[in-house]
Amino acid sequence: MTSSDAATATQAGISAEIAAIAHEYDGAGVVETATRLDYPPYRSSILRHPTKAAFQLDPEELELCSPVFGQRDIDPLEADLTIQHRGEPIGERMTVSGRVTDGDGRPVRHQLVEIWQANAGGRYVHQRDQHPAPLDPNFTGMGRCLTDGDGTYRFTTIKPGAYPWRNHHNAWRPAHLHFSLFGTEFTQRLVTQMYFPGDPLFALDPIFQAITDRDARDRLVATYDHDETRPEWSLGYRWDIVLSGSRRTPLEGDVE
């Protein structure tokens, strides 16, 4: 497939490709928990996925450690994306919080979480974003924090809008926050996207659907949590993140 195919593909055509892969996955009866790297409906992946299986090996001590981030690295105010400019950004104010744990249930403590996103109109502060939606002079859309002693992170931001992209004709991405996460080991490094419940664009989006397993896709969808909603201020979402299991031999009493 060439880029001109991508430009002329319709949503119906992309949706048919997505459906064919889903049908094949359902018929195979083998659960996949990871995102596929080779997923042609996402046209940009066609020349950017490895064709050979990853080489399995045991991590060395280096990869069983993670870089350390601390108070020198992060100002606590960086967790509030609504106070980075002189005025208030436009849009629906929200918080998102959750716990980062490893696959064995251990909290990932005092580790870096980075997020970035479009503004309420679906526009990124990026010179290559050509979407003719307005920039918001009071919103950059980038935040950082450290998880606390319980592995909990928390951001205050504005709910991002959906935005159009050029994968195919009339392609729109569901609203999402980009997340970058570190674990206790370099092997747990994760970059992913958080979505909002009930988005009508889910079925149409080849990036979301590159996770062929429904349960696995659902793990990227936040939950609306009224207990996290603050009166006359902001709507609350919860999203817990599970990194891969630790490769270190657990010490006695390590699992919580």
Binding site: Y42, D104, L190, T192, I207, L220, S244
Partner: peptide, 10 residues
Amino acid sequence: MTAPTPGQTV
């Protein structure tokens, strides 16, 4: 082991 959160493109 709890299933991990899948990755997505940057």
